[in-house]
Design a protein around this nucleic acid. Structure first.
Lengths: 245, 245
DNA sequence: CAGTGGTCTAGACCACTTC
DNA sequence: AAGTGGTCTAGACCACTGC
């Protein structure tokens, strides 16, 4: 009867607490994407723990792709602006195996009110203002992707068609450099659907042609959803790749 | 001019060498799926390194899902026979969110010669003997998945329809318990296709209905491909889920 | 209670980058 | 040469499991 009960939250090792503090600094934009964070020795001093404990915390954050370690240089905040991260979330690849350069064409960028469905995914209220975007991506002149994007207006205040069409590079790099929003992870739900008239026209296919429907919710720091995408891929000459571990 | 040149393979830390040795023991079936490997202290003694070095090696193998750590109990060889791993590679989920119990019906299990395509994926020669399997998986009485499977005859000598239909549980658990073959990872290529007559009949859909085509290559230890699957999913009431990190 | 994995430390030294 | 991350060690102690 001398035991302590209710060990509900039980036990949190030091390095977990340090992960939380580093995450807080990332979320507070104390260290920006692409910039180095303090060295392990400095962080160990700041948090009054050993270097090994800081290492373990950083190791786990690096495994989640939030930080990037570079031996001899330092540890950096992950960014979508680096060459090797440009297409980090793109799983579409040409069947031929050649390298894939998609060109962007933005068609629409307008303010609307969020439907109940979109509001729910973005954790807004139905009717809250959102930005709605349409784009087509082409490969070797052929339209391959038709994509709809929804963003909360609050975070992407002045975004418009001109900004989009003048931007060269991944959209997630634009979000980072102009809207201080770094995408950390995403979830996709995939179905096969038949092209309706509008889709068939955009992708230059027959009505009824099978398309891959990919719905994505993308999250920033703190598991905050900030972008919804609904893409349709023409998979006649390309495919969606996935690795299972 | 006194420097050594050609540091091509450069440097391999101790824990990497230990990973290689542990992998060798796994591949040699010295420790079987589900069984515990020796304790960290034993391994440290065996390899004449510190416990910390063994820990790092095991940590990385556990991160790749080759080993499973259980505090207080030991470290175990990963297996598809555990409850929580039953559907480790299944990414299909019902839209409703309810839990997904698929029932299996095997239609065909016969010996053939590998086509050039299949042989290439399995790293065999065209014409080498393979087993060809058809199955249908149903959810709540509705057929949802039609799947073709190719296996090298050498590894799955006596596999037949009776064995398949008497087996209750995941196919990968069968491979483990009867054919000493543990699947480590897989790669999938996904497209949208239209149902042909045969598919439409199997899945009780109209000809031309959009289906998700999922081609999988599954690998055992040593990156050896040992199974090809070509599935077609009816995604009208379910979807393929993926997480991007 | 003994045995397992898990945490944390302090210190030595190595590998890589930059100046 | 100085600064960074990376490896390795030895030892103390904690948390969890099962006998």
């Amino acid at each position: 009867m001398s035991e302590v009960n209710l060990p509900i939250a039980s036990f949190s090792p030091l390095y977990e607490q340090i992960k939380v503090m580093i995450l807080a600094s990332l979320q507070a934009a104390e260290w920006l994407p692409g910039a180095p964070i303090p060295s392990e020795i400095e962080l160990a001093a700041r948090y009054a723990v050993s270097q090994g404990t800081v290492r373990k915390a950083i190791d786990e954050l690096a495994a989640q792709n939030l930080l990037v370690r570079r031996q001899g240089k330092g540890t950096f905040v992950a960014t979508h602006q680096e060459d090797d991260w440009q297409y980090r979330f793109l799983r579409l690849a040409p069947d031929s195996g050649e390298k894939f350069h998609l060109t962007n064409q933005f068609l629409v960028c307008q303010r609307t009110k969020a439907s109940a469905y979109i509001a729910n995914l973005l954790k807004l209220k139905a009717g809250d203002p959102v930005i709605y975007i349409d784009r087509i991506q082409s490969f070797a002149g052929q339209p391959v992707v038709f994509e709809e994007i929804w963003l909360p207006c609050t975070r992407f205040k002045d975004l418009d068609l001109e900004i989009l069409n003048e931007w060269h590079g991944p959209v997630y790099a634009l979000y980072e450099s102009k809207y201080a929003t770094h995408m950390v992870r995403a979830e996709e739900k995939i179905k096969a659907v038949a092209a309706d008239e509008a889709l068939a026209k955009h992708l230059k296919l027959a009505v009824g042609a099978p398309l891959l429907s990919v719905e994505r919710v993308a999250f920033t720091y703190g598991n905050k959803p900030v972008e919804i995408r609904h893409a349709r891929y023409d998979t006649s000459e390309q495919h969606y790749e996935n690795k299972l571990n």
